[in-house]
Design a protein around this nucleic acid. Sequence first.
DNA 1: TATGTTGTACTATAACAATATGACAAAGGT
DNA 2: ACCTTTGTCATATTGTTATAGTACAACATA
Lengths: 124, 124
Amino acid sequence: MIKFLLDYSSGVPVYRQIIDQIRFGIASGQLKLGEQLPTVRALAVTLKVNLNTVSKAYKELEIKNILETQQGTGTFISSTKMAVPKKEREDKLKEICLQFSSVAFSYGFSLDEIMQELKHIETT
Amino acid sequence: MIKFLLDYSSGVPVYRQIIDQIRFGIASGQLKLGEQLPTVRALAVTLKVNLNTVSKAYKELEIKNILETQQGTGTFISSTKMAVPKKEREDKLKEICLQFSSVAFSYGFSLDEIMQELKHIETT
DNA sequence: TATGTTGTACTATAACAATATGACAAAGGT
DNA sequence: ACCTTTGTCATATTGTTATAGTACAACATA
């Protein structure tokens, strides 16, 4: 199962963050074909958001045929293709790294300091 | 002068994108102390957004003492550093690295991928 | 069959983002 | 002085995001 995480300081709408994390989770192999996602109610509680917000995210992914829903049963990964084009994944990586380095540099940290610190991060 | 570019598909509010790009411009050295930014009206035309949107971005940066505005003259970079107490420097580094890695992991990127990408960041 | 779980649908409300307009204030140049 | 340029402010309007609450439909299981 994937670990969801919301970044309220990013300005990106919650339902879009959920969508992206599912899509990228599929792209990275953390989410596999047929795997069940948390129920809309469960994820809403976990993320402390409204049920409708999660529902909106799931529904948009269902329209794109990435998820398949069955009332009374749950929501599942129905396709692992086309979730995220290779280029988009690369671009995303660049984007968040650039954004992060921007913040780090503005605080006066060097690339070496950053790398050193990141090495000590536990992957969990 | 910095080159602004909006990404409407990102979900990030326009005024925030402007803020981020100025901050990154400063952090990367593309924007220097005392340099004048485009006027609110000029940038609004360039980006095809409303004047108020640019104004909002500039004003927020002025509140943080990163920009300085003079009516009738323009807006300028007034600071290229973030005031951070030295005591909290290490803590800050850990904090932003942890936050960043969490976000990166939630998108399914590995530590290796992150490190690899960061190596390519240009400090200029 | 009855109950609980799951996704769906709808209304109403609030906050935010962005636009369109218009007017005003401060500084500079002529 | 006058005009232009600059940033600022205020109002109204539109669309999006998110919440709260309620009800309903489909499915699984005891």
